[in-house]
Design a protein around this nucleic acid. Structure first.
Lengths: 270, 270
DNA sequence: ATATACTGTTTATATAATAAACAATTTAAT
DNA sequence: ATTAAATTGTTTATTATATAAACAGTATAT
């Protein structure tokens, strides 16, 4: 028993600060007064503040105050603000994942991207925290596990599967950031028009000269660049359109691999 | 002449703060003492500091001090720190673009992504500044103009071309961020191993249980997730691999459009 | 010549993370 | 049961931040 605990501590020591906390590897202290707060409570309070007023509103003081404590009390639970941010990040990655796969693999991938993007929209601050490496926190890894599940019968090795997950995650991240920024612009009184650039159409039409921007010029003048007539866009939504191109690329690769493996079998049999 | 100036001011008023500066639309003041600094000088000094010590090191004080002035003097040139950041962003987007296209369109796209990614690697702080909307600063638009140039003979409408540029830019952004973070980890004494997760292999092997992570478990245990044996990765580089899948997807779409247009011509002729 | 608009500086304000010292409290060791 | 050790939440202090306001000096327009 005590051996096990020592091991847990050792494992925690291998991980960067907050990650050990996210795995629950930090032993609750034995002596001293009973704790009045919990890590969960602090993280939830911080998330609530970030959701409402943005990441910049998350100060140790503000978080502590919202719980009725002083800033310094938080340091009895979480070593630094950076660790708090990491815990926030992992906490909002705890999303409900489907138990069963859709029959079409493309649908699985679409859902993978949609759910990932949703985190950015629900928690606009999520994308403001920089990536510091490969995911190693539990909820993040659960999403990856899901991705590996719906690709389990793909004719791919693990490197290829991981690479596809990275591709989809990256797409979800950059698209999620854009969606989020648009949402934020809308909420903060600005219009969708301002974000997509329609508000700047006039300025751009005056500034983008055909000599300096020969190929962009017509696109600005036609109003396509700033989406003056959103209903007219024949491809619909840029983000969905881009995802379909990525899925086409994946499909192409899968078919190539299938052919390859078919040949290998033939050679083995013949 | 004076009419022109008024118009320039008006255009500037339509754009958000820093953008007007980036287009050179803010008239230099006529009266008063000669300026000892210039916007260019300030922006360059800020970039130098950010390149060396990160975005968080860029304080008005630090920038001004490095030029031998006080923090407040900068406000005579640039209205706020946010505007300074926008100017920094646009400044580092001034990259040399090729005058001529490569014969293969895939090579053009590969270069587009490579050059875009390079900005993130050369200026690690670049990705720390959030996107606030469609690009409207001059150097940014020049890159888009280049993209439209090498797609000029594609059988696509402007919406589709812009969408492809967005797809490539997004991929470059997320990949650039990852590359940058890896570079930073390396420089800050950490190893590539730490970043890719090899340093955490032991911890992950102890934490990722087959019951909770049935599909991730074997990938962790084999060492593929944490790239224990980088030379063994049969697909080489994840980032290049992903880009090729995207290019495959684009190619697939182009071929579909070509067929479509071929049919339309047949119908028109027949 | 003089009013005006600008310069860079000094001073001041408000807010941030977190280190250090504190008395109060709970547990472990004796 | 008593004492020593560990931990609690708080108070106080330190250092750094962006930028507003007031300043004396300077170049230009009238």
């Amino acid at each position: 028993m005590s051996k096990d605990k020592t091991t847990e501590q050792d494992i925690g020591a291998m991980l960067p600060g907050g990650a050990a906390l996210s795995w629950g590897l930090v032993k609750p202290p034995q002596r001293g007064p009973k704790r009045e707060l919990s890590i969960r409570q602090i993280v939830d309070a911080a998330i609530e503040i970030a959701d409402r007023d943005g990441l910049s509103a998350v100060s140790m003081n503000r978080v502590a105050s919202s719980l009725g404590y002083t800033a310094m009390s938080l340091y009895r639970y979480i070593p630094s603000k950076d660790d708090l941010l990491l815990l926030m990040q992992d906490a909002v990655c705890e999303v409900p994942l489907p138990d069963e796969d859709a029959p079409d693999w493309r649908d699985n991938m679409r859902l993978f991207v949609k759910l990932s993007m949703q985190v950015f929209r629900d928690h606009p601050w999520f994308g403001d925290i920089p990536i510091s490496g490969v995911p190693i926190t539990p909820n993040n890894l659960r999403v990856i596990d899901w991705g590996l599940r719906f690709m389990r019968d793909f004719p791919l090795n693990d490197y290829e599967k991981i690479s596809f997950i990275l591709l989809l995650s990256n797409y979800a991240r950059s698209s999620g950031l854009i969606q989020r920024d648009m949402d934020l612009a809308l909420k903060s009184g600005s219009t969708a028009e301002r974000f997509s650039g329609t508000d700047y159409t006039l300025a751009l039409k005056a500034l983008v000269k055909p000599e300096q921007f020969p190929f962009l010029y017509p696109v600005i003048m036609s109003g396509v660049y700033t989406e003056e007539n959103p209903g007219e866009n024949p491809i619909g939504n840029d983000i969905d359109f881009g995802l379909e191109r990525i899925l086409d690329g994946i499909e192409h690769y899968l078919e190539m691999k299938k052919k390859e493996q078919g040949k290998e079998k033939e050679e083995a049999n013949g």
